[in-house]
Design a binder for these strands. Structure first.
Lengths: 345, 345
DNA sequence: CTGAAAGCGCTAACAT
DNA sequence: ATGTTAGCGCTTTCAG
């Protein structure tokens, strides 16, 4: 059914629409009595101005488009929460889309958001997590970004001008490996994710560098790549345990992998951390509720979201911003790692 | 910077805006050559029609407003995923808001969505999960619903005409309790959530009924109410273990409570399910990755989301729909429950 | 097959 | 302090 408009109110109050608009927005003085009359009408009709009309005129929607691969991965809701909090204070709401890492769907949504004229875009996952993003996908993103302020969250696209907000994952991994070394571990493996993703590559590189700098063993068969799931962690740990030369500790590409690894170890009759130390990455909420509680690297997902909105805001205001905004991760030591004890005493 | 409009295209192609509109929407035949000319221009300018203008005219936005208490609770992303999938196929996108169970924020968002003229609203959490919703909160919701098709997901408001899609939580709890009884348990406790929430009340009632019908012990001190968090589960289990008369199994209001309960039991030196059986509710993704894997009741969160969108769609099309759409939950038996063994042999 | 023009609901000059 | 009016960018009669 047709909703009440500003005209209906104006007519009934015997004033012009301009006056109604004025009381609505407080944009110019209105005599007290007229204001009261109008306000009463607004109340009684429960009138709410049409945002589309206003948006069309002002050329702004108050909406930020958020493209996320999969909200079911607890990392993203955390980022979302941070972003939402910041955005709400600035008066923005989110148009949200799950891209499921499907590039076509990402493109779909990119177009949709352009059509809907969102004021800004936050893009996570999919193509911006690739080690090497295909040119046409990158170009599409740049094209959109040239019209709508866009920031890549927790990812980046090389050789582009796209601005991104991300965690220093290399530094985070170094923290994890160093922690294990300090605990006396010398045989440390790396459980990776999909090798074409930049996060896996960055972390592997950091892992190698720290081990090398420490003069420790760098076995190829201890550098695994699979995917980011719990099952992947299980598979990789199973493989590790089947080797004749076993590591005493593993660094995982993310918390899911770590959980999978622990499950596999437990199923094989080992204890964590007594028999093998495991460190994760991300600090998903579950990490400190799992048994054992997970030692992990916090990406401060909340901050990531908050910062991304802050940067986006600046861009929407037409300010110039840095191309890269790096957040420092930090190590959270809990129960899944501990001092190496020599079993062969 | 100003974006290209249909007028720019029209002028450059030497046609009227009407013609451009026609090729854009295929709403009337256009001569092949003109069409080609226009399409070329659209391509080269990378023109994208302004959705706001169209929305204003058509009086529809293609947006569904989704109000959720907390995406950080893994149940909701699951619902979202189901809803998103269904909505995407129908051409809708979501405007998403975290209400954090804050009624004022819920109201805020309700107004916002009305202002933005979303085509429909999906409302979860907060006031619709209350055992008894305050009249003015209920009224506000009804007012919005009278203007915008609205469905309550996984909740309801008594004595209202608001339509809702929900799981039969009573039936689900009965399933859980019966399962324990069949395993030989006779001393079964209930770990609840906040007592003013309908879900806690409904589940408690079902728990009582099944036990009573089976002629089993119904101790008041085994019927706990706290909140829905992991910590709450811990607290409640700790309390239970401090009693002189301990249950051999517990039914929890949700998976978080169950996980907390297990943690507390483990910390107290017990094993699950050897010493005590635990069943959860919701089947969050974590449930089958936890150690031990959780026996739980699946709400089929995905279905909930999908169904809600289906019902909403019907409402948006002006169809009449049932007031209540009940989904049947089912039991998923995993590792956290098992046959009672007599310790006092 | 194509163009002219009205109008969706609102805001913001510009008058008065 | 208030009214008139011109758009914002698009779709859709209504004419040709």
């Amino acid at each position: 059914m047709r909703q009440i408009t500003i005209y209906d109110i104006a007519k009934e109050a015997n004033v012009s629409v301009a006056t109604v608009s004025r009381v609505l927005n407080g944009t110019a003085p209105v005599r007290k009595s007229t204001r009261a009359k109008v306000e009463a009408l607004i109340q009684s009709y429960n009138f709410q101005p049409n945002g589309m009309a206003r948006s069309l005129l002002k050329n702004e929607t108050g909406i930020i488009g958020l493209i996320v691969p999969d909200l079911t991965n607890p990392f993203y809701p955390e980022v979302f929460a941070g972003a939402e909090h910041a955005a709400h204070q600035l008066g923005y709401t989110f148009l949200l889309s799950n891209s499921i890492g499907d590039y076509a769907k990402e493109s779909d949504y990119l177009h949709l958001m352009r059509e809907k004229r969102v004021d800004g875009i936050l893009f996570m996952g999919g193509r911006v997590n690739l080690k090497q993003c295909e040119p046409h996908l990158a170009q599409e993103l740049e094209q959109v970004a040239s019209v709508i302020p866009t920031v890549l969250v927790n990812g980046a696209i090389r050789n582009s001008n796209l601005v991104s907000v991300l965690t220093d994952e290399g530094a985070g991994t170094a923290l994890a490996v160093q922690h294990l070394i300090e605990l006396g571990h010398r045989d440390i493996a790396f459980l990776g994710g999909e090798s074409h993703m930049s996060t896996a590559a960055i972390k592997l590189r950091a892992y190698r560098k720290v081990l090398k700098d420490a003069g420790l063993k760098l076995l190829p068969e201890w550098q695994l790549m699979d995917s980011f799931s719990i099952d992947s962690g299980k598979r990789q740990m199973k493989h590790l345990l089947s080797l004749t030369e076993r590591p005493t500790a593993v660094v995982c590409v993310n918390d899911y992998n770590a959980i999978g690894a622990i499950k596999a170890a437990v199923e094989a009759g080992l204890s964590v951390p007594e028999d093998i130390s495991v460190v994760g990455f991300d600090d998903i909420p579950l990490a400190h509720h799992f048994i054992p509680e997970l030692t992990t690297v916090s990406q401060q997902a909340n901050d990531l979201g908050r910062t991304a909105v802050g940067v986006l805001k600046q861009m929407m205001e037409g300010q110039k911003v840095k191309k890269q905004h790096m957040l420092e991760p930090h190590l959270i030591v809990r129960q899944s790692t501990r001092t190496l004890v020599q079993h062969d005493v």
